[in-house]
Simulated scan of single mutants.
Amino acid sequence: MGVSTAAALAEEFETHRPRMFGLAYRILGSAQEAEDAVQDAYLRWNGTRREDIEQPAAWLAKTVTNLCLNRLTSARARREQYVGTWLPEPVITSGGTLGPLESAEQREAVSMALLVLLERLTPRERAVYVLREAFSYSHREIAGVLDASEAGCRQLYRRAARALADARPRFAPGHELRQRFVESFVAAAREGDVVGLEKILARDVTWWGDGGGKVAAATTPILGRENVLRFLAGVMAKFGSAEVTYAEVNGAPAMVMRTAGHLTAVASFEGSDGVVTGVRSVVNPDKLAFVERQLAAA
């Protein structure tokens, strides 16, 4: 392969990289593993004769999906041994890292809440669901990706949709309301305003913290307003010494905390009826590495 041909192939691959990363991330729930899967796809792309790739986008989608399916098997085993609550790696999405998020449906498709729910699915159910919901693939196209029958893919999709239907929130607050949730929470936490926090949090609020055994975090979900308030009483002092900013993370406003110049937490908020019903806080430094790089490049 000549230098100019190799350069042209590399350039062509780069035009597909963002879409392939978005696909891999949705299937895997890990930005770092998604980057690795896309890089593996590049190596295969580079080692395949160009005349054997009739439709680059379709070839790459199939390659990346199957690489992700292989990775999911080992990832599931690791997550079963994970210390504490496992949450997806956060990704700043305002720059288009996961593709256009112009509608509520597109934003929900990359939300922390939905990515957690996708863990309930088998690897093939997850791949079918992501291809159908996030990328609008037809069942026929999905069958081509998975080397399966169209009827089989329809069945996988139905099973996935049923498994998620009851667990998905009935109401997703709009962008402005989510932003108010985050700002109100941060303001109250900074002031040590327990009464203010009490007003913000729903009675049945849940707090999930992912420290991965690397840093201190609740190892099980904290259920109920009183328990969450007790937990926050022990960590509110950190807000006074930290730099807190906001960013669009996984399609929604989120809190980004830096302490002594290092990224130490990214928290996403869910709500309903004007109060916060759930907070997912990622403090595992390994899972913050991708966001750290995004912030450094901004």
Rank of each mutant, 00 (worst) to 15 (best):
R158M: 15
R159P: 00
R159N: 12
A160L: 05
A161M: 06
A161Y: 04
A161G: 03
A161T: 00
R162M: 09
A163M: 10
A163S: 13
A163L: 11
L164S: 04
A165R: 15
D166E: 15
D166S: 13
P169L: 05
R170K: 14
F171Q: 07
F171D: 12
F171W: 06
F171M: 12
F171N: 03
A172Y: 06
A172L: 13
A172P: 02
P173I: 10
G174P: 07
G174L: 04
H175R: 07
H175E: 05
H175F: 14
E176M: 06
L177R: 15
L177N: 02
R178L: 12
R178E: 10
R178I: 11
R178D: 02
F181A: 02
V182L: 08
E183C: 02
S184N: 11
V186E: 01
V186W: 01
V186I: 14
A187Q: 07
A187D: 13
A189W: 04
A189T: 12
E191M: 08
E191N: 10
E191T: 12
D193I: 03
D193Y: 01
D193H: 04
D193W: 00
V194I: 06
V194R: 15
V195E: 15
G196W: 05
L197E: 07
L197N: 05
L201W: 08
V205L: 08
V205A: 10
T206K: 14
T206C: 11
